[in-house]
Computed example of a mutant assay.
Amino acid sequence: MSHHRDHRTAEPFPRVPADDVPHARTWMSWPSRRGVWGLRLGGVQRDIALIARTIAEFEPVVMCAPDDWTAGKARTQCGSGVEVTTAIPTDDLWMRDIAPVFRRDGYGGLDAVVLNFNGWGGKQVHRDDARVAERIAAHRGLRHTYADFVGEGGAIETDGDGTVMATESSLVNKNRNRGMSRDEIEEAVLDAYGADTMIWLPGIKGQDITDDHVDVTSRFVRPGVVMVQLPPADRDDAWARDAREQFAILSEATDARGRRLRVVPVHGPDTVRSRSSNFVDSYLNFHLVNGGVVTTRFGDPYKDAAAKEALAAAFPGREVVQIDVDRLMAGGGGIHCSTMHEPLP
């Protein structure tokens, strides 16, 4: 399941750190296209504003908006605690997938790697979104390079200590990396992330816009520890089977340092308020912030409380904040999907 290579040379090399390092800021994007969201746009804007205001209590937030009119609307809803800029126009809100992946360069600075976003395999308009990664890097004055594969930040989880994980369905897919073998894609991912070992999970092709991003189901807590969200026992749909399969594979996996992974289960809600078939009922699509964890609640009091407790135990010393972003989750993604952290160098 995993492939090892040795990256440890005397020369420092860029490496993507884990999400839990101190952040300089969180990047977000204001949804503005009726063509993408239709009548759901207003509700999704309210959820994005809530996420931004919540994160802004912990660390700076920069919200990218495509023009002055939408920037004005974003400022009104997000309040003065959130910086809104028109310098980096966007098509949609999924900043995790369109932003650059920030790396520590090994010399006390940052650089950025661009994952060549192509609209999740050409499924959605992305003229501006395809340029966001290089524009953010330029805006921050960071050197950027282009990865040798097409992918999205939400497709790849890293422990910052040499190990990454991803679903085959989202990367070994002709809609993104036609003509490349899994081994070639793996080599390109390891090179971009400065990692040594890749753990592959099969995933599900063609059932959602992302082709099953790993960050909805399985997340690194720290090196050697992974959390996986498991469905209620009576669920046997494709997503439920996928989650159980991820749990089983990760339970047998070893990381770059030869550690057998400890897999911590979090149980998904039994009931949700949404009727959307695209609804993502994930507690694990959380965003780590300085001193906090921002995650969801779904109105299932027992499971909501248990998820909060599990995250508090996983990230001691961080305040766990649960918010209701059902309208965003009905659009097929969550809090982690709509944010990208910029680490301190």
Rank of each mutant, 00 (worst) to 15 (best):
G162A: 11
E245L: 12
C64I: 00
A240D: 06
S170W: 00
W37I: 06
T76N: 05
H23R: 07
P265E: 09
H4V: 10
T145L: 12
K174T: 13
V62C: 10
T217F: 01
H3L: 15
Y283N: 03
A99I: 04
V125N: 09
R96G: 04
V62S: 02
D161L: 01
V44W: 01
R34Q: 11
T217R: 02
R244Y: 10
P345L: 07
R46L: 09
L41I: 04
A52Y: 03
T339R: 04
L41K: 03
D129Y: 06
E252F: 03
E57G: 14
Y283Q: 04
T295C: 08
P60W: 12
L311I: 09
D129M: 02
G292C: 05
G109I: 12
E252K: 12
F102I: 04
L230T: 09
G258S: 13
N173W: 00
D236M: 13
T271P: 10
A24M: 04
V294M: 06
A253T: 02
P343V: 10
V101L: 04
W37G: 03
L201F: 08
P22W: 07
V272W: 08
P12G: 07
S169N: 11
F286S: 02
T158I: 03
A166C: 13
D324I: 08
A71Y: 02
V228M: 09
V113N: 05
V214S: 00
W27F: 14
Q45A: 12
A56L: 09
H267G: 07
E57R: 15
D215E: 12
V272N: 08
V226F: 06
T210M: 06
Y193R: 01
R178L: 15
G194Q: 03
T9I: 14
I199Y: 06
H7V: 15
M63N: 06
Q246M: 13
W69L: 13
V132N: 03
A188D: 11
K308M: 14
A314M: 02
D20E: 13
G119S: 08
I55P: 00
E186C: 15
L328M: 10
S274L: 08
